[in-house]
Simulated scan of single mutants.
Amino acid sequence: MQKRTMLHGLACAALAAAAGTAMRPAAAEGYPNRPIRWVVPWPPGGGADLMARIINTKAGEILGQPIVIDNRGGAAGNIGTQIGATAPADGYTITFGYSGTLAINPFVYPDTQWKQSDFESVIFLAKVPLTLVVNANLPVKNVKEFIALAKTRQLTFGSSGPGSINHLAGVLFASMTGANLLHVPYRGGGPAMNAVLGGQVDALFMVPVVAAPQLKGDKLRAIGVTSAKRTDVLPEVPTIAEAGVPGYEVSSWNGVMVPAGTPKDVIARLNAAFNKAMQDPQVRKGLAENGYDIEGGGPERFTQWVDSELAKWGPVVKRANLRPE
């Protein structure tokens, strides 16, 4: 009787193991065996779209299946991010995670239909700093002179919209320096750049690759970059920290996410492919030319970074009194 009971138990255990294997998401077996959709929550032609297209072809080659960009812009990135959050957790839909959507929107749009726990990290892709540029007619040549002038009178700074990274870069700068800065929002980076070129606003925080061509004329002056180290795009421009505001650091950043519950071996496969793709000489060249600093590493590194940025930007958003538009 004891032997029969033991054999019955072993048989049940074997059946349970087989059932567990059968119930695992199909993506974990032979992944990937069809194209992968990469949801980018911004329209074509923007910085997020550019970053994704620099790397998607090489990552797809490594995986053996194409990675197809699916641009889903709208609602400050929340529409596309929600699409990614509610996709099947099988590794065939990945989402472009961005500083605005992941670290700022949760405070500006508390009622979004997605939340941080809907995702798991795949990889930290890259960071790109901003450059503080001023209209050439403004009588300042460096960050210290800019701060000093902004303490004697109100200066204006443009942005690509309320809650954008270049808006909050200005809010953080003002809070750390005591500079009297008035925010003037525009509908995108292009109009904001035209405004500082035309003297409608005094200053602008803008990605170096956009600012660099404008510096060749006599209408704009770069006085600092927001990263912890100087950027190769504008190596002669000091960081804002070294120019007089210790501890100041702001960057736009991005990474890849998948829906929560995606098999760990699928996440590991994606992580390895993207890490390898970012070591490709052509990919590295494309990223460097556009001012991106490559990050990479394991999934947990991106999770830790997002957590630290949430802690950083929550108080800044509150200080700016941002509300959904």
Rank of each mutant, 00 (worst) to 15 (best):
Q154M: 13
P139Q: 01
G158N: 07
L182N: 09
Q154S: 15
L168A: 11
V134G: 01
T131H: 07
G161E: 11
M176T: 01
G170D: 10
F124G: 00
V133F: 05
T177Y: 02
L125V: 14
G161P: 13
L125C: 07
A150G: 13
V140K: 02
I165R: 05
P185T: 06
I123Y: 07
Q154N: 14
Q116N: 11
Q116K: 12
T112D: 15
A148I: 01
M176L: 14
F124R: 09
V122W: 02
R187H: 12
I123V: 14
S175L: 11
A136T: 00
V128S: 12
E145P: 10
T131S: 14
R153A: 08
V133K: 06
A179D: 01
A136I: 01
V122Q: 03
T156W: 01
Y186M: 02
F146I: 07
V108W: 03
V184F: 05
G170R: 08
P139T: 01
G161F: 14
N105D: 15
G188K: 09
S160C: 11
K151N: 15
A174P: 00
T177L: 00
A126Y: 02
V143P: 00
L132Y: 03
N166H: 07
L130E: 14
S117G: 04
S175F: 03
V184L: 07
K115V: 12
G178A: 07
L149A: 12
P139H: 01
T152R: 15
T131K: 03
V143Y: 06
G158E: 02
D111C: 03
L155M: 11
R187N: 15
Q154G: 12
I147F: 06
G161T: 08
L149W: 10
S159D: 07
T177F: 00
A148C: 02
K127H: 09
A169D: 09
G178N: 03
K144Y: 08
L181G: 04
M176H: 08
Y186C: 04
Q113M: 12
S164C: 04
L172A: 10
V128C: 08
K144T: 15
A148Q: 15
F157M: 13
V140E: 00
G170M: 09
S121N: 12
N137T: 02
A169R: 05
T112W: 07
V134M: 02
G170H: 10
A126I: 01
T131A: 14
A169S: 15
L172W: 00
R153Q: 15
A150T: 06
V108M: 12
S175W: 04
P110T: 09
D118V: 08
I104P: 02
N142V: 04
L168Y: 11
G163A: 09
L172M: 10
A136G: 02
G163D: 10
V140Q: 01
S159N: 08
L155W: 11
S117A: 13
F119L: 05
F124W: 15
L138F: 02
F107E: 06
V140T: 06
P185M: 11
D118T: 09
A126G: 05
A150W: 03
V143S: 04
V171S: 05
T131V: 14
S160K: 08
A148L: 05
F107W: 13
V140N: 01
A179V: 03
L102T: 09
T177S: 11
N142E: 10
I123C: 04
I147R: 05
T177P: 00
P110G: 12
V184S: 03
F124D: 12
I104T: 08
